[in-house]
Simulated scan of single mutants.
Amino acid sequence: MNKTSYTNLSKAWEFTESYALDEQRAYLQEVRSKVEAQGHEQGSAAQARFLRMLVGLTNARSVILVGTAAAVETIEIIDAMHGSGQLTVVDSSSDGAAVIRSIFNDLDNVSDTRMRVVNATAGVFLPRLNAEDYDLIVVTGDASNYTATFQQSSRLLKQGGATIFTDMMGFAAPDSSGGLLNPVDREPKTLELRSLLNLVENDEHTESALIPVGTGMLLTTHQ
């Protein structure tokens, strides 16, 4: 690929994100604006839309979302479950957990999907869950969520289940200095993401794919 190709890819990434944001339903746009006004930056619209499609395509009915006030992703996942199954949200921030609980309260009358919100870190809560009980795990937010979730994923997932790590480029971190694209970025989340990529690459029982959706996503499954 030449310089023009890379420039076009950059423009395509921007176009895709703008398109996804414009296509978000009015309710989602309202939630995004409201939650961001409360100080909780929301993730990529294209990423959230991809998660919705993935849940639908895999017919996932038992999903874990590890995040920090991941309101948009929460709504997209619930919609994709079509009133069935259970979504477990693990949020280490008490403010973030309160945001997700308020969304659950709003959706309680329009969705039969069972929902629970836990204010705890991934490293503390995930080991308490039943083994081989989940179809999909989605990871967002704080740096501490990533490796801690990967270490539990093979135990928690059913046969054929997958884990999706979002913001794998590290652009969305509040202290980002370029994320993985900047070799000298030594911020906590960037270091965590580099460590996770190395861990996944060297795990002979894990299949993975790093894809440029949103701010980067890493898809993993276990053999």
Rank of each mutant, 00 (worst) to 15 (best):
N2G: 13
F15K: 15
E17R: 14
L21F: 11
D22Y: 09
R25I: 12
Q29K: 14
Q29M: 09
E30G: 11
Q38E: 13
E41C: 10
A48D: 06
R52F: 03
R52H: 15
G56V: 07
R61K: 14
A80W: 06
S93C: 04
D95C: 08
V99D: 10
N105L: 12
N105Q: 15
V110H: 07
M115S: 05
V117I: 00
V118A: 02
F125A: 11
R128G: 07
L129I: 12
D133N: 14
D135A: 09
L136V: 10
V139Y: 02
V139P: 02
T140N: 14
D142N: 10
D142W: 11
S144W: 10
T147I: 13
A148V: 04
Q152F: 13
Q152I: 13
S153E: 08
S154Y: 09
L156T: 08
Q159E: 11
F165Q: 02
F165V: 06
D167W: 01
A173Q: 04
P174R: 08
P183E: 05
L191P: 07
R194T: 06
L199I: 15
L199S: 12
E204H: 14
T206S: 15
I211Q: 02
G216R: 01
M217I: 05
L219N: 01
T221V: 05
H222M: 02
Q223N: 12
Q223C: 08
